[in-house]
Design a protein around this nucleic acid. Structure first.
Lengths: 207, 207, 207, 207
DNA sequence: AATGAATGAGGGTTCATTCAT
DNA sequence: AATGAATGAACCCTCATTCAT
């Protein structure tokens, strides 16, 4: 009656991921997970130390990779060329390549980490990411705009909206190509939107 | 020894709102609510039929008002003047007046309705709102852009980001003036962003 | 179907005391307790915050009283007259009065505190008591005996034996008169035993 | 890859003894034992039928030896010479030889048998031993004292204290020399204490 | 001999809700 | 109106033991 170990573990991980996606960490039920995975509660604890260890096994690699990305990205920055044009078509092309390299980062696991992790040690991930985005955003607009006195809250809101949009894409659109296109457009939207809001006062319309 | 009915009910509603804001409907605990409200579990059920009725009492008026607003807004539309200019400064002024009339709509209760209602009959509110926004958005870009073949998903993402930003403002920034300014900027950002993304191919740069 | 609150609580306390006496804190089962007390698990938590709070309610007064006794006793000491004679009959009389004043201290609860409290915050009570007894014992024999170099371990053993005997009386003999007599004899035994062991070298046989 | 059978078994016995010493039979965890012994739960059951069989293997020889000792000791008795003197110094010497012969009996296993066996078939060992001691004690004082009417409970208490002291030495003091010295002093204490309590009425002070 | 997967009962605890007082 | 006692299901988790491999 025994099944090979990996099968059960994979079934547990698979059902757990669904359960966490649907309910979040705290409302997820181990009883439901093991039932759907076709095993028993007792057996669950042969595979995972506890509920949080199960969650960790799902997201920890992603978490580390993402933190590594965040740190290295901070130093490296994005393509300079972005700042050379406001033409949507050209930007799309540049972004497409750039985002292509980031695709592994924007996995479903990132959604678990940021939006379904309440009650775990990862529960601050979203605010960490938000801080990074906000800082990043503020740096950019400081370059363009001198009077940055009261932009903190705006950056907070823009960063939050941007992040939620990104996470929404990751959660909902699993087809890889579509996802990449949507991420492209999403970033493009925020880039052009920012330029448009700030731009009028900064740039000479050169025609 | 009796306290006037309204006082108790108000205390319950007050603490319930905080509890639902913090935990969401399902993780909210009636025991905690009554304790903080200074009454007892038994008495709670003299005022409310059950947990969901309590939630309803907090949000139902808002829900109806919002649905009414959504429906009437669909017919009435927003200020035409928005379409006449892309100057951020002028748009700000117009928006400021427009948003001023909407402020009552963007209350904390709307946040409860959309983001803390899982497990209640209101749990679909966010997707309803999202649909409205998305439809709205699609209509606008259809006016501006002929090839609207595959914009549905983009509209979905833009709508979602926009909505999440709006809800974030409502949740986090309670000072009325700041909130209105942030909402203004938020709408402006989306308006200009949309124009910028679409605009290059549609508008003659008239200089 | 409801019973007056105090009845249920008392039933719970009564059965809990039996359960803790028989099994100790950790092996005691709340399910068994509530079953014997004629109520349900859910209801148990209307009366007590958790298992340890139940234990505390049984022993905390006793714990405080005992600690107070220990501290004040340290300063006050026992009857001087004990040191004036080695006649068992006389000592019995003196001890009888002395022990009479201590009877409330030597309750069944003290047994719970020292011998059934593993896993609770009281689990160190026995070693505290043992330290007090040992220190006390060492002081006495230092008065009588100059070469106290290596008596620490002996005092430890004597103290432990004495304490275990005392707790055994408390646990097993519930009749108050018998208990007092046994405590008397117990103390007497340790007093005379100590004198006998040390005495040969210290006292002039005065005949 | 296989380890020799005896090594595994010995490792299990070793860790089991520690575990039983620390937690007692019922709270001991086979999972912890096998982990510390470097093997697995499944393999454990190749060596021992179940948890109780493991405990038995640790203590059964000791149990039988002790029971044999108890029975033969009952017939044989202790050195007559003990009764000839009350001088502590002389008694120490006699006892030292006597106790030396008993040392194997007073092993750590005896502690397991009496104080960590709850839940096993050995759980009555302590009360058996206590009965033996008590009977023994009563016989002695009957020789010395005619009015033995109500000494049963006192013997019970004295026996218990004596036994607990002995077991405490065995548990805590593992250095062989120190242990023997403490056992000597312990027996001496009880011998002299008993004499002192009874003695006044029985012996002529011969000076 | 060795592994660890599998089981099911039981551990303490929280919950929304009902209802007698 | 107010109290809180009562219920039972569900929560996460640990346990000794069995057994297929």
């Amino acid at each position: 009656m025994q099944v090979k170990k990996e099968e059960v573990k994979n079934a547990l991980l698979l059902e757990a991921e669904k359960e966490f996606m649907q309910y979040g960490f705290e409302k997820a039920s181990i009883r439901r997970i093991v039932k759907k995975a076709g095993t028993t509660i007792g057996n669950f604890y042969n595979y995972f130390e506890n509920k949080e260890a199960l969650f960790s096994e799902l997201v920890d690699d992603e978490y580390k990779a993402f933190m590594y990305f965040v740190n290295s990205h901070n130093q490296q920055g994005e393509p300079e060329v972005l700042l050379d044009t406001l033409d949507a078509g050209q930007l799309r092309e540049v972004l497409n390549q750039f985002v292509g390299t980031l695709i592994p980062v924007f996995s479903q696991k990132l959604f678990l980490l940021t939006s379904r992790s309440e009650g775990t040690k990862y529960e601050n991930t979203k605010s960490i990411v938000l801080n990074v985005i906000t800082e990043h955003y503020l740096e950019h607009i400081r370059e363009l705009n001198s009077n940055n006195g009261d932009n903190k809250e705006i950056a907070d809101v823009v960063g939050h909206s941007f992040l939620e949009g990104l996470l929404y894409i990751i959660e909902k659109y699993t087809d890889e190509k579509l996802r990449q296109r949507l991420i492209n457009e999403h970033i493009l939207f925020y880039f052009l939107g920012t330029m448009a809001v700030l731009g009028d006062s900064n740039r000479e319309k050169p025609c």
